[in-house]
């Protein structure tokens, strides 16, 4: 079990938006403009932080979803990634009590969680409200 993770409760930043796909989820950090791809197990980890959780609570929830001891490093790596990229932030105050652990996506079995930041961020300044791209020289 990693000791370099924050001991306090963490919560997903409100300006990180997500959408569920058939075998995982995509997250978009509206601050950094990066997309992230999460497989079904990583999405289950991320969901633990939607209402606030500690790293310990997230690990425990993953165990309830089928994670084994051997998956601990991969779970910690996902949490560490969330912390390093500021996708989660410390939850001030007592927070909500831990509820039922988020379910893994229907039809998916637990596997090594994987959260990947995409290569390039989206543009910050757009051509128009319809056309985000910067035009090529013609």
């Amino acid at each position: 079990m990693s000791t370099d993770l924050p001991a306090g409760r963490l919560i997903l930043r409100p300006d990180v938006v997500s959408t569920v796909l058939h075998d995982g989820a995509v997250l978009l950090d509206l601050r950094s403009k990066y997309f992230y791809s999460a497989n079904a197990s990583a999405w289950a980890v991320v969901q633990q932080f939607e209402a606030g959780a500690t790293a310990y609570e997230a690990r425990r929830a993953c165990a309830a979803l089928g994670a084994r001891e051997a998956d601990s490093d991969a779970i910690d790596a996902v949490i560490r990634h969330l912390v390093a990229d500021d996708l989660v932030e410390p939850l001030e105050g007592p927070g909500q009590p831990a509820g039922e652990p988020a379910a893994i996506l229907e039809g998916a079995a637990w596997s090594a969680p994987s959260l990947t930041r995409h290569q390039e961020p989206l543009q910050r300044i757009m051509v128009s409200a319809f056309d985000p791209g910067i035009p090529m020289a013609e």
Binding site: P14, D15, V17, L28, L30, Q123, M126, P132
Partner: peptide
């Protein structure tokens, strides 16, 4: 990159 995504969640 083809959709103008607002910065508001």
């Amino acid at each position: 990159r083809q959709v103008a995504i607002p910065g508001e969640a």
